[in-house]
Nucleic acid binder design. Structure first.
Length: 241
DNA sequence: GCGACAG
DNA sequence: ATCTTGTCGC
């Protein structure tokens, strides 16, 4: 199935495809040393079908930026919890195809196997690009866990159906944890170790943080002004008139 | 039926 | 996700 055709799928068909992808997941430990790593993210205006995708490449473990790639695309697939990949992966793959050199591993903003069908966006992206990938989410989708301690790198396993599907990691003191899970071709332990090395003073791991800054930048540069939106703040200030 | 629900 | 200011806590 080509990502460019995802928007033609119904939710039921997308779920059927996830069941198909699930069988192909490989969580064998990555045996090759990591020299390059990439972070990916998407930005968009909620009143527009335009999505801005970006990937930032770094050398590893230093995390010095060595390249970027972006793509401005459109999607009609709505955001549906559990089907995020069908909305965001097409644009990400467009950016991916523009990369001169592909990284040894990718970090995606969302879940890996910490998903009801074990097919979060990191797993999905890793499978269709045949690239080791890790999911790092800012909130939980599924799974039960005890709140990790409040010290940096305190962690707590996430369970679903008796299996460990991810790790809630305290990336920064006094901040909510982030949720780490392997996506494809990397183990649970390696995923946590790699993400820990990508934490550089902020709650969000550097690859994703930089990708987020990049996509927001290109969205503003593209002139997001044309996509009119009335938020509560503006609305209240216009009431007198 | 009810509550939960990545971005 | 995205909009925006102020404010609280470390």
């Amino acid at each position: 199935m080509q990502p460019s055709r995802y928007e033609n799928l119904t939710a039921a068909q997308a779920i059927a495809y996830q069941h198909e992808l699930r069988r192909q997941i490989d969580l064998t430990p990555l045996n090759k040393p990591i020299q390059t790593i990439g972070g990916a993210d998407i930005s968009f205006n909620k009143y527009s079908e335009v999505v801005y995708a970006g990937i930032v490449l770094f050398n590893y473990p230093e995390l010095k930026v060595i390249g970027t790639a972006t793509a401005i695309s459109k999607t009609k697939f709505p955001y549906i919890s559990g089907l995020l990949a069908f909305r965001e992966v097409p644009a990400l793959v467009e950016a991916w195809n523009k990369l001169e050199i592909k990284p040894d591993l990718m970090v995606l903003d969302g879940q890996g196997i910490a998903h009801e069908r074990r097919t979060g966006i990191a797993t999905h992206f890793g499978l269709i690009t045949n690239t080791p990938a890790i999911g790092s989410a800012k909130s939980r989708l599924t799974g039960r866990y005890d709140e990790p301690g409040n010290k940096p790198f305190d962690q707590s396993p996430m369970y679903d159906n008796g299996e460990v599907i991810g790790i809630a990691l305290r990336s920064k003191i006094n901040c909510n944890p982030i949720y780490i899970s392997p996506g494809h071709r990397v183990s649970m332990g390696q995923s946590v170790d790699i993400i820990k090395n990508c934490i550089r003073g902020y709650r969000i791991p550097e690859p994703i943080r930089q990708a987020h800054l990049l996509v927001n930048k290109i969205r503003i540069e593209d002139g997001d002004n044309n996509n009119r939106q009335i938020n509560l703040f503006d609305y209240n200030h216009r009431l007198p008139y």
